[in-house]
Simulated assay, not measured.
Amino acid sequence: MLLHESVPQNAHGKEESTQSALRHTANCVVMVPPKEFRFNEETAQDNEFQHQVSLTQEEVSHNTMAEFSAMVETLRKEGVQVVEFDYPQSDITTPDAVFPNNWFSTTPEGTLYTFPMACENRQHEVRPGALVAALVQAGREVHQQDSLTEYLNEEAYLESTGVMVFDHFNKTVYAALSQRCDRLVLEDYAKRIGYDRVISFQTRLPSGAPIYHTNVMMAVGEQFCVICDEVIPEFERRFVLKSLAKDKQVISISLEQMNQFCGNILQLETVRGDKVIAMSQSAYDAFSPAQRNQLATHGKLLPFDVSTIESIGGGSVRCMLGEVFLPSRKAVL
């Protein structure tokens, strides 16, 4: 049964999960080259992190491809498997395709889920058939597919790990409610994956608008979390922080640090099992030395210069990484 905790209701009743039975960090990610990247007017309607820049489109394309390629190379060098999903272009451009984590997710049991995207031009990024082919070629098994895209007919949206931040060890989903995160779709997905605890909450920026994606304000690792809790109303904030602090080191960041994408980070593991934490260079620079030291106890810090992508696209390193938890294909002897 799903235990939905729309904060602060149902504050009790969490069932403990054994960490050994679950996996929190992925050692494989999907990344999509930004070959159609530009300022997306559709997403800018509710994404306050996007900015117009004075670069030509040629300069934008050159900078973003260089940022992407350097990130892929470094991740591979560190031992993280990267699946480059370079799909064929069509008549409809997908300027935000570099952020694939918003339209799919995977499970260790071998299921690929696809999600309803709020903006029309982003809905064209959803290419499950082509993605399955790329994943299988990379040695991953896809046993079944499931989709929540039928909710598009109801104008209800759930943008995958953009709006959902998972604590896999405790089978808990944290989600800031917004136009891109519908509560009913959120509950449906949690039921499908067997996660019995959903903690949804409101957020408020200085403009009065909600956070467009939860993963710009918080990240959850195996034993730590980073969160800009000041954007959560006080009554809900206490409950969220109490839940996180049960078994995580809580690293609180300011609104200014969130605007430098300090919340948009991701703990991964290498094929050797070592932990790394991917983040942008701007996030790395905005963390205090003490915060960097705290994070470094949970994995090697990997800062990437994606300044063009994060300024124009309003998303950063974590948004560029679609985690792959699918099982590896066993070699035939």
Rank of each mutant, 00 (worst) to 15 (best):
Q223L: 11
A209D: 09
V216S: 09
V216E: 06
I211V: 15
I211N: 09
S207E: 01
Y212S: 10
M217V: 11
P206G: 12
M217Y: 06
E230D: 15
Y212P: 07
A209Q: 09
E222R: 15
C228S: 07
P206Y: 11
Q223Y: 11
S207L: 02
V220G: 00
F224L: 09
Q223N: 14
R204Y: 01
C225D: 05
V226Q: 10
T214C: 10
V226I: 15
I211K: 05
I232N: 14
E222G: 06
V226L: 12
D229S: 15
F224D: 09
T214H: 06
T214D: 08
G221P: 01
V231K: 01
G208S: 11
Y212E: 09
C225T: 14
I227C: 08
E222L: 05
P206L: 10
I211P: 06
F224N: 04
L205M: 12
Y212N: 15
I211E: 08
A219S: 15
S207P: 00
G208K: 06
C225R: 02
H213T: 14
V226S: 06
L205D: 02
C225F: 08
E230C: 09
T214E: 13
V231M: 07
A219P: 04
E230N: 10
V226A: 12
P206D: 09
M217L: 14
D229T: 08
M218N: 07
G221W: 04
Y212G: 11
A209H: 07
Y212H: 14
D229A: 15
V216M: 06
Q223F: 08
S207R: 00
V226D: 08
A209T: 10
C228L: 04
L205P: 02
M217R: 01
V216P: 02
P206C: 10
V231I: 15
D229F: 04
I227E: 07
G221V: 01
Q223W: 04
H213D: 13
I211D: 07
E222T: 12
Y212F: 15
I232G: 08
C225G: 04
R204S: 09
T214I: 03
M218V: 10
N215M: 12
G208Y: 13
C225A: 14
I211L: 15
I232P: 12
V220N: 00
V216W: 01
V231N: 01
L205G: 02
V216Q: 05
P233R: 03
H213P: 08
T214K: 04
V231Q: 01
E230G: 02
L205W: 02
I232W: 14
F224A: 08
C225Q: 03
A219I: 08
G208V: 08
V226Y: 11
V226F: 13
E222D: 14
A209K: 10
E230W: 06
R204M: 13
Y212D: 12
S207F: 03
D229I: 03
P210L: 02
A209N: 08
G221I: 04
M218F: 10
H213K: 12
V220A: 00
